[in-house]
Design a protein around this nucleic acid. Structure first.
Lengths: 194, 194
DNA sequence: TACATTCCATACGCTCGCGTATTGATTTCG
DNA sequence: CGAAATCAATACGCGAGCGTATGGAATGTA
């Protein structure tokens, strides 16, 4: 009957990867601040003793989890997107992707709330720069000038990260599936050149 | 020669207001997490003993500081803005205000990084709702339909909060005074209907 | 089976920040 | 001036989390 169903994920012995996954899961649920070793241990059905065999320190775990996430994010968000030739359609698809594959965005949003923390900031700086570059390139290919494209990319990316913050962290009117579609359409109409 | 010039603000005895101001200053500088009573005490040139005479608990201080900020923010951002009759010009001025009066925006951005924390979230929810309403109204008066106005307001506000996060927290290319003006112009051109 | 490696539990120490208790100084004011 | 009220210093207790030490169980392997 435990309301907070602390789902213990793996059953047998644990590997470093298990801890990293658990860390990312907890991160997505309640932020980096709650990623504590004793808490994770309970979640996994073991104790600290286990953790410190796999990792030297809590920071080491965070570092590993971040690398794991950054890698998967790199593939998901960026890679399978270059396929779309038409830049305008690529932009539209990019905006739509925010709804699908939410899990990765949830972690993104959680990490953006921990931009203090020396390990997180550089990761998010790289991730953000990559996304900005993708956007900027698409806008250039869509016909905008160098400066225009840069500004529009920054605007679009700001809207993206801001929207996630308002929705997931602030919890501002959760915006049902219906209205969300309408909103995305409006964003596309406003930010994607005809 | 102390690099981190921990400026002790008031000289004589302290009042509750002094602690609140110091809390807001520290908040703006390094986030809510660093708003600790012993730290503030050092900053003010006293010790904990003083603090706990003025406040029952750290949370009480935060609560008071938040009320103080919300009040001042309410006046600055909202009040002296209804003056501008033309909604389009009002929107333009609104975007420009992000550059001036940075201090309040810095505190805003810092608080948006602490949306966990039970005292902060409701405050930011109210503040955000007010600003969204202001935007939405302006867009309606500018001729947009009910839904259009709501969506555009959300988009503009997302861009606002996202931009602050990217600039102040992530530190993404600090964007010199020159480029910043150009960016704001681009935003206005993109988000304010002709 | 024997032995090494891998994984985990228990118990402990340490630091940091909050909050309390107590005493002391400094105003304020009758 | 003397007493009350106001503001502050010192010392202490406490819980949360990290990290360490050490022994024990489980798994592989010769």
């Amino acid at each position: 009957m435990a309301a907070t169903a602390t789902k213990l994920e793996p059953r047998g012995r644990l590997s470093a990867a298990d801890w990293e996954e658990a860390a990312l899961a907890t991160l997505a649920e309640s932020g980096l601040g709650t990623v504590a070793v004793e808490s994770l241990a309970r979640r996994l059905g073991v104790t600290k003793g286990s953790f410190y065999w796999h990792f030297a320190t809590r920071e080491a775990l965070i570092k590993a989890a971040l690398e794991r996430w950054e890698k998967s994010d790199e593939e998901i968000v960026v890679a399978q997107l270059d396929a779309i030739a038409d830049p305008r359609e690529r932009l539209r698809e990019l905006f739509r992707r925010v709804s699908r594959e939410m899990p990765s965005h949830v972690i993104y949003a959680a990490l953006m709330q921990s931009l203090d923390h020396p390990l997180v900031r550089p990761v998010m700086a790289r991730v953000s720069q990559r996304r900005l570059d993708v956007l900027s390139l698409a806008y250039r290919q869509a016909g905008l000038g160098r400066n225009e494209a840069g500004h529009r990319a920054r605007l679009a990316y700001s809207a993206y990260t801001g929207f996630l913050q308002l929705s997931l962290q602030l919890g501002l009117q959760r915006l049902g599936h219906e209205d969300f579609e309408a909103y995305v359409d409006h964003v596309i109409a406003t930010l994607v050149p005809a």
